[in-house]
Write a protein that binds this DNA or RNA. Structure first.
Lengths: 78, 78, 78, 78
DNA sequence: GTGGTCTAGACCACA
DNA sequence: GTGGTCTAGACCACT
C-alpha cells in the first residue's frame, strides 16, 4: 500500500490526493470509493485530511458525491 | 411539479414540508394524502425524509394519521 | 420455478411453505432469504400469504427473523 | 448494564429513553453524555434508535445539545 | 397496502 | 470527533 509521509514538504492532504488520483487513473479505484472513516484508517490520517483531499479531487472533476450514498469515481472518463 | 433542491441551505425534509403545507393551504391536497412510498418517488427522497416532513406537519396539526388506513389532511380547516 | 396452484385443496400459504422448506432442505435457500415483497412477486401471492408461510417455517425452527435486517435460514442445520 | 429487549411490547427507543432518564434522575449520568456511536454499541441499537430516544429526552428538557461538542444533561436540575 | 419501527452506513456542518 | 441529515430497504401491526 502506498504510504503517506508526514515529513515530506508536501501537505498530507495533497499526498493523499495524489495517491487517489493515481489509483483512479490506473483504474484501481472505480465506482464507489471507500468511506471517509475507512480512508482515515487506511492512510493513518484525520478526517479533515481525507475531506480536503477529496474536495480537491471533486474540484478536478475526478470524483462526485451522492449525499447519503457515498463518493464515486466520475464515470465520464475515457 | 415542485422540485426539491439538495443544494439549498435548507434541509430536504423542511423543503418537502413547505411544499406539502403550501398544497394543503391551497386546497390542492385534501382528504387522504399520497402514501409514503408514493411521496418518496414523486419527490425523489427517502422514506425517512418523507416521515420527518410529515411529522412536522402533524406537529403543526395540519395532518392526522389513521393507523393502517393512511394520512389525512385535517378536516377542521376553513 | 415452482408454481403455486390456487385450485389445489391445500392453502396457498401451505403450498408456499412446502416450496420454501424444500428449497431450504436442498440447500438452495441459504442465509438471507428474499424480502417479503420479492416473495409476493415471485410466487404471485399476497403479503399475508407470505407472512403466514414464513410464520410456519419459523415455528418449525427453519427460519429466524432479525428485525430491520431480514429473515435468515437457521444456520444450526446439519 | 441495563439491557434492552426487542421482544417487549414497547419500542426500543422508548426503552432506551427510559433507561437514560432513570440514569439522569439517579445522577449516574451527568454533564457530557456518551456519543451516539457509543450509545449504539453499548445498547446494541442503531443510531436512528438512539437519536429518537435522545429527541424524546430533549423534548422533556432533560438533555441539551451543543453543536459539534456533544449532548449534555441539563444542569438546571436539583 | 398503510403507517410504525428498525438496521446499517453514508456525507455534512461545526467546534 | 460531535451531532445533523440522508439513503436504502428490512420486518411489524393493523385495516
Amino acid at each position: 500500500m502506498t504510504e503517506l509521509d508526514p515529513d515530506l514538504p508536501v501537505t498530507l492532504w495533497r499526498q493523499l490526493a495524489n495517491v487517489l488520483r493515481a489509483q483512479i487513473e490506473a483504474g484501481e479505484l472505480q465506482g464507489l470509493i471507500p468511506s471517509e472513516p475507512t480512508l482515515c484508517q487506511r492512510y493513518g490520517v484525520s478526517r479533515a485530511t481525507v475531506r480536503t483531499a477529496k474536495a480537491s479531487l471533486i474540484e478536478e472533476d475526478l470524483l462526485t458525491v451522492v449525499k447519503g450514498r457515498g463518493t464515486f469515481v466520475k464515470s465520464s472518463r475515457e
